[in-house]
């Protein structure tokens, strides 16, 4: 019975902990993209560098814009050559087919999706601009999704915690029924409810602590099983991204929370049980 209870506690808490961990990692990942909130203004191919600089100057006075950078054709070409692996084929071209690009980074406090979209539409209409592109729309959507998922995780956590309260309560109830004669004798000898309740609270404490440790280990197991595929994926994208596990305080919170809800379950059941017992 104890093993079963511990398992249920562990599983009930592994779910929200893992969910939380996943969200935390996605959040860190999306934060690492922050500097790439930039809008790229692709100028017409025939536009020369002087005109591009002029455009940059005219834009720099805008309040919504944090920084601007002109990327010349040759620089863009070099970057493309290095990244794409089409180096030789590109060398065969006489003319540089790439346009000048101006990178516009909006001010962070301005960077919500609606504002940026409005800015993009406006920049699009400027002379010399062929088109404006903002390819971080998905990032904004991701942020919204994270917010929703976080609410979902919270709800899941609350429900599963209630489950823990119930399962611990049920375990303690069975033990109480087992020890009813003993409890009655203790009451007759003058034991207070606090005295009778104490060992059951300890029981709840240990169930919570051990169940919490199991949940921590379960979360660690899931985490470890994901680190190497993620590392490989990250390598593939030349990214330094790596997964983070629960930090010290998050781990402490998991254990403390597990003990708290488990003791709550024990306390509720014992108190109700003693209350129904005749004095």
């Amino acid at each position: 019975m104890t093993g079963m209870t511990l398992l249920v506690i562990a599983i009930s808490l592994t779910f929200p902990a893992t969910f939380y961990l996943a969200l935390k990692n996605i959040q860190t990942l999306s934060d690492s993209f922050k500097e790439t909130y930039a809008i790229s203004l692709y100028l017409f191919p025939q536009v020369e560098i002087e005109e591009a600089e002029k455009l940059k100057k005219s834009l720099s006075s805008r309040e919504s814009i944090a920084s601007l950078k002109v990327i010349d054709k040759s620089v863009a070409m070099e970057a493309f050559r290095q990244r794409s692996g089409f180096g030789d084929a590109l060398g065969a071209l006489d003319d540089n087919p790439l346009p000048i690009v101006i990178e516009v980074v909006p001010k962070p406090d301005f960077a919500d999706p609606d504002n940026i979209q409005a800015l993009v539409t406006e920049l699009q209409t400027l002379p010399n601009v062929e088109f404006a592109q903002w390819d971080m729309q998905w990032l904004m959507r991701l942020k919204e999704l994270i917010a929703i998922a976080r609410r979902g995780a919270l709800l899941l956590g609350v429900l599963l915690s209630l489950g823990v309260v119930l399962i611990v309560g049920n375990t303690i109830r069975l033990e109480l029924q087992d020890r009813l004669p003993k409890i009655e004798i203790m009451k007759i000898l003058g034991a207070t409810h606090t005295f009778i309740r104490r060992p059951f609270l300890y029981r709840g404490f240990w169930l919570g602590l051990i169940g919490g440790i199991w949940a921590w280990l379960g979360t660690l197991g899931l985490y470890l099983s994901l680190t190497s595929p993620v590392a490989r994926l990250s390598d593939l994208y030349h990214s330094q991204y790596s997964l983070h596990f629960l930090n010290f305080w998050e781990s402490v919170f998991l254990l403390a929370f597990s003990m708290l809800i488990s003791m709550t379950g024990a306390w509720l059941v014992v108190t109700r049980f003693l209350w129904k017992l005749r004095p």
Binding site: P181, K182, I185, K187, I188, L189, G190, T192, P279
Partner: peptide, 22 residues
Amino acid sequence: PDRKIPYFRRKIGLIFQDYRLL
């Protein structure tokens, strides 16, 4: 009141017909 009964019982010794041992 019920909550004072434990302290009251500590001041009396009870011996039962059926012993009531653990």
